[in-house]
Design a protein around this nucleic acid. Structure first.
Lengths: 172, 172
DNA sequence: TATTGTTATACTCTATAACTATA
DNA sequence: TATAGTTATAGAGTATAACAATA
């Protein structure tokens, strides 16, 4: 049904679906979806993973600060943290100085879950990139990192449309 | 940057957010979002673009066949086609043999919109890949195409989690 | 009055099931 | 009975505004 494949699928090919930008959207969505699939058996969803990672690197954050770091709205964080706290992976500790805000901490179970999570990410990675050898994967990662930098994407924040320096308040 | 392999952002780095799989999700979501931004002024959304492209390649499809080709539910297509028909870009023609189904056709305005769309895609492409030169873009596209093939992603269908040969039945 | 976390609300996208009109 | 298109509905995910407690 499709026309014969053009000789090369370069950016100048007549078929936009062969261009890098389209392929990026397509493969990127696939990667995100498959990662979510692998997370599901652990009872976690992608946003949970981001929170666990962030708290591992900076224990004791307030919800406000966490939201800032992740590009997540405070109201969304409430539900996500409720779920993580219910599963015993995160706790909201009272803060002595200021009784309005909590200090967020990973529990031991939370740190364990994080390790599982890294293992799962590695499996996902290996499966997704099965078509490429080691040096090709590095080259791919290099290209993607350069694009991410040039596009001013915040490192480690998944929702890709979130730009660096773009304030939460909408306009900057 | 002339560092040996295992140092910074390789697949074996301790920080998963530097691995290709994460970068793919992040940059891919960014690409999709920015493309949607560029489509908005034309009064179109990404799914509309897919429909216009599909009809250009195969005029006269039924809604059923179009949904099959795009991996879209029939019920979702109704609204999308309503919008396109209202804007005069697509028409549902009665089919002589079978009065249950329509034959979908691009109008002249639809073909014009498609050309605009390709121009917009090219701009998007140039902006997104500004960090890479021509030969690097081709290499990137090549890697992505190999991943897409190995992962059995259907060519040209955006929702990446849709696999070739996988039935329409969703899983929970 | 400003700030932290929370609740309530709305809007989009997507998926499922029920309905109609033909066949 | 089966099929094509449609309608209605429900569930995620996400953004916005109002609110209570505290500062």
């Amino acid at each position: 049904m499709a026309r014969p494949r053009a000789t090369s699928a370069t950016p100048n090919s007549p078929d936009p679906s062969a261009w890098p930008a389209f392929l990026l959207s397509q493969v990127g969505a696939h990667s995100a979806g498959r990662f979510a699939d692998r997370l599901a058996p652990l009872g976690l969803k992608p946003p949970h993973a981001g929170i666990l990672r962030a708290l591992d690197r900076a224990d004791g954050l307030s919800q406000q600060a966490l939201g800032e770091a992740l590009g997540t709205f405070p109201s969304r964080l409430v539900a996500l943290l409720d779920e993580l706290e219910e599963r015993g992976l995160v706790e909201r500790r009272d803060r002595p100085g200021d009784r309005r805000s909590y200090a967020l901490h990973l529990t031991d179970a939370g740190r364990e879950a994080l390790q599982q999570l890294v293992r799962v990410a590695r499996q996902h990675q290996d499966d997704l990139c099965a078509a490429l050898d080691e040096s090709e994967r590095e080259q791919l990662a290099g290209y993607l990192r350069r694009i991410a930098e040039q596009q001013r994407l915040a490192p480690g924040i998944h929702p890709g449309w979130k730009l660096l320096g773009e304030g939460r308040s909408g306009k900057s």
